[in-house]
């Protein structure tokens, strides 16, 4: 991650206020996909906050990650409706098939999983998104198929 890129993000927040901490971290993550020690340091210097505080805040919220995202980012809905329709099985399936759990990235850097709150399409659950493309009424087999497709597209 380049230093001056972080600086550019920081420039969007002319006021040194702690209120800006979460938005700044969100911007950095949006840009880079994850947070790094470098980012923690820079933001700390800018907002005059100890690094431990920034790290503490960043680890509290589930959206922040310190691991790079996979090339294919899988979002799985864990809304109640999807759950009743079998979403939990899918999470287990992902673990079985890719060896990753919520918030993790596979060793080859290809896939990462994020379990998200309701995606808002309860009628068509279970729902998942892969790199922002939505898939509805997912079953375990269908999940495997979709993942295979992406895998193949890489080979």
């Amino acid at each position: 991650m380049e230093n001056n890129k972080i600086k550019k993000i920081l420039e969007r927040y002319p006021f040194v206020e702690r209120e800006n901490l979460i938005p700044i971290l969100q911007d950095i993550q949006y840009e880079y996909g994850h947070l790094t020690e470098e980012a923690v340091k820079e933001v700390g210097n800018y907002l005059e906050l100890p690094a431990s505080k920034i790290y503490s805040v960043a680890t509290f919220y589930s959206k922040f990650r310190f691991q790079p995202r996979g090339k294919f980012h899988l979002k799985l809905c864990r809304g109640t409706s999807c759950q009743i329709k079998g979403a939990e099985k899918l999470e287990k399936k992902v673990y079985k098939y890719l060896g990753i759990m919520n918030g993790e990235t596979s060793g080859d850097g290809m896939f990462s999983l994020e379990v998200v709150a309701c995606m808002g399409c309860c009628g068509l659950g279970p729902v998942m998104a892969l790199n922002n493309r939505y898939y509805t009424e997912i079953t375990e087999d269908k999940l495997e198929e979709i993942i295979d497709d992406y895998k193949e597209s890489e080979e």
Binding site: E17, R18, E19, N20, L21, I22, L25, Q26, V57, F60, Y61, S62, K63, F64, A117
Partner: peptide
Amino acid sequence: AGAYVCGEETALIASIEG
């Protein structure tokens, strides 16, 4: 940034305060 507990008002305030 992903915290259900922020539905609680004092937690929400803390979150806005960064």
